[in-house]
Design a protein around this nucleic acid. Structure first.
Lengths: 195, 195
DNA sequence: GGCTCCCAAACAAGCGTTTGTTCGGTACAG
DNA sequence: CTGTACCGAACAAACGCTTGTTTGGGAGCC
């Protein structure tokens, strides 16, 4: 596959991603996307097969990045708590590396066609399961103060997943900084420990 | 205003809220809403003035509920940390009391018309400011381990705001349970304190 | 000459909204 | 008590416009 071909495709994905994030999937028309790419509406169909397909590919690519970041950590020989901490930092890293994609992944996925939405949900559940197992291991090792792994995992994801709403790439903090700060907050809490 | 009038309006708001949450603002047509109410599309305009107005009213009502819940706590004579904790619980309470509205408030507001979106952002910033002041006070009283009130506040909202994605009204936990659990997590963290 | 990329134009369907009209009820004049 | 004038709510149909997508043809490159 020549580079020019890949470039156009990537450009379309990038542009679509940004528009989907800003104006939502149904708020962004094919013609909107085409214009930003420098084409007419119909011309996009030389590169995509449908609007639904476009969303699907964006969301799938994002999912793949989350998995790729988490797997080596799960398979590593780090300590239980270090695994959990690394997983959180890695998760934040994936979000920070493409904020638009993270936004689409987190909020626009529900506009997939029913079958694809079901497949997406399954895949995301698998990912959450991997995370949950890390939490369970930490509970088992008596490293956490909580008993309920489900609520704890939801708590973690709530905190991490919506970082894309406020994180600025050009801000004072790098992605890894934020990942460390967030995982510290999650593990240690905000309250001062009266020594 | 007779009850029948109010009822229809409330019914439309409720239905629209649910649809906006499920399929998004642009994914829900006037005819979709009307059908669920038992009317034809055009007939809705005896009760609403525009689709944008409808969204605006839903979002404004939600904002008002958040303010109403927070104000008495800020004005109370509770201790600094108790205020912060109560504020978090109250915030969760407002979300739990109408999950559809909370979802629309948190994710669909950006489809408001530009002027209204600006007004909404201003109002939400005011609310976040009230919260931030509670955090600042707690930092000033040396009750928190963190210095950066901005990040801490973002952390709190990240965790609380997206509860609507997983909270089930018919689950084992009441809204206040969840509020307490969440604020404990936020303040104390997940990690066990090795005494 | 074949292939890739794009345009121009069209398609049916759906959008938010407006229109003209009907129908049930309710207030009030006689 | 009756007749009539008015009103809000609903329907059926249409408005102009945008939607996602398809088609046919024409450049320009290997």
């Amino acid at each position: 596959m020549p580079d020019a071909v890949t470039d156009r495709r990537n450009q379309i994905h990038r542009v679509a991603c940004k528009l989907f994030r800003d104006k939502g999937f149904h708020g962004s028309s094919i013609r909107d996307i085409a214009e930003e790419v420098g084409l007419l509406g119909g011309s996009l169909y030389n590169h995509i097969t449908s609007k639904d397909d476009l969303l699907s590919e964006i969301v799938d690519a994002a999912a793949e990045r989350f998995f790729s970041a988490l797997r080596p950590i799960v398979d590593s020989d780090l300590g239980t708590l270090q695994k959990l901490r690394s997983a959180m930092i890695a998760h934040v890293g994936v979000i920070a590396e493409d904020l638009d994609a993270a936004a689409v992944f987190t909020v626009e996925w529900r506009h997939l066609s029913p079958e694809r939405r079901a497949a997406f949900t399954r895949r995301r559940n698998d990912y959450e399961q991997m995370f949950r197992r890390l939490v369970r291991a930490a509970i088992h090792d008596r490293l956490l103060s909580v008993q309920d792994e489900t609520t704890a995992t939801l708590f973690i994801f709530s905190t991490l997943n919506h970082m894309f709403t406020w994180f600025k790439t050009d801000g004072p903090l790098t992605a890894e900084d934020v990942g460390r700060v967030m995982s510290d907050y999650i593990l240690d809490g905000l309250k001062r420990r009266t020594a």
